[in-house]
């Protein structure tokens, strides 16, 4: 099939950007979205032009590196699908696709469609871990975890840190990512000792980089892993408790 692409090109972080139009010709509907971009890039290179820079790594929906704004939707139109898992059969011959980078103050554009997501690392550094003794491996069933709790933690842990939640949020808020990363530990026994410290620390850093949640739910709809906004409410609750406890402790 043949498609018309309008792609955001930007030479560097501070360079002005603009849309360029490209024709993607003879694209197989079995190819993935990123393979389609590869094809376009090969032609650009053959013509001696700069290829379109975009983010990718595993190309199997598990690493969270890819991410594009396609026709106004983060990761494109398929629910629960990362850009790399989006296939061209979703589109029809002659479609026009507008491709933009994820936009947020916390995700500065590096080049073309590539953005920096180090702000997510800053959030994780502020408490997205458990402090454990790194001696020999502990006995597997030393700490019993109820099935429902383990399932809930796994639901949160499914977050691959792609940033589509921020990209899709009309407020540029990172609540879904942060709440998933807080909850995956806060619901488990192993996460309890640092529960409140973690919540306060991660929320504080989140608010330095991103916007504030207005409960629109756009993040949940864009999330390739179907992370639920229930985790946002759980984070809010833990934040309230942590603030109260922090005051008492002092």
């Amino acid at each position: 099939m043949n498609l018309t692409l309008r792609v955001w090109r930007q030479a560097g972080p501070d360079a002005p950007g603009r849309f360029e139009t490209y024709e993607a010709k003879g694209i197989s509907e079995d190819s993935s979205f990123l393979e389609m971009l590869d094809t376009v890039n090969e032609e650009l290179v053959a013509e001696g032009e700069e290829p379109i820079e975009f983010m990718h790594d595993c190309r199997e929906g598990i690493c969270g590196t890819c991410g594009l704004m396609i026709n106004g939707r983060a990761h494109g139109p398929e629910l629960g699908t990362a850009t790399c898992q989006l296939h061209m059969r979703t589109y029809s011959d002659g479609d026009e696709l507008v491709i933009e980078p994820f936009r947020a103050a916390g995700f500065p554009i590096i080049k073309d469609l590539v953005v920096g997501r180090s702000a997510f690392d800053r959030i994780i550094e502020a408490g997205g871990y458990v402090t454990v003794d790194t001696g020999s491996a502990p006995d597997a069933n030393l700490t019993p975890v109820p099935k429902e709790t383990a399932d809930l933690a796994m639901d949160a842990a499914a977050c691959i840190g792609c940033g589509a939640c921020v990209a899709a949020c009309p407020n540029g808020a990172a609540q879904l990512f942060t709440s998933a990363k807080i909850s995956q530990l806060n619901v488990l026994p192993q996460g309890q000792p640092e529960r409140y410290q973690r919540t306060l620390g991660m929320v504080e850093v989140m608010e330095e980089h991103f916007g504030s949640c207005t409960n629109m739910g756009e993040c949940e709809a864009a999330c390739p892993k179907g992370i639920s906004i229930d985790f946002i409410a759980m984070m809010n609750k833990d934040y309230r408790k942590a603030t109260f406890a922090g005051r008492k402790a002092g």
Binding site: G72, L79, E100, R103, A104, P170, N171, A173, S212
Partner: peptide
């Protein structure tokens, strides 16, 4: 705060899925 969090707006038209009229 939210204005600051997205200084550059999307150039293409947003296609909202969950954010309804009331919320926006």
């Amino acid at each position: 705060m939210n204005r600051k969090a997205r200084p550059e707006r999307y150039r293409s038209k947003r296609d909202f899925v969950a954010a309804d009229f009331a919320a926006r």
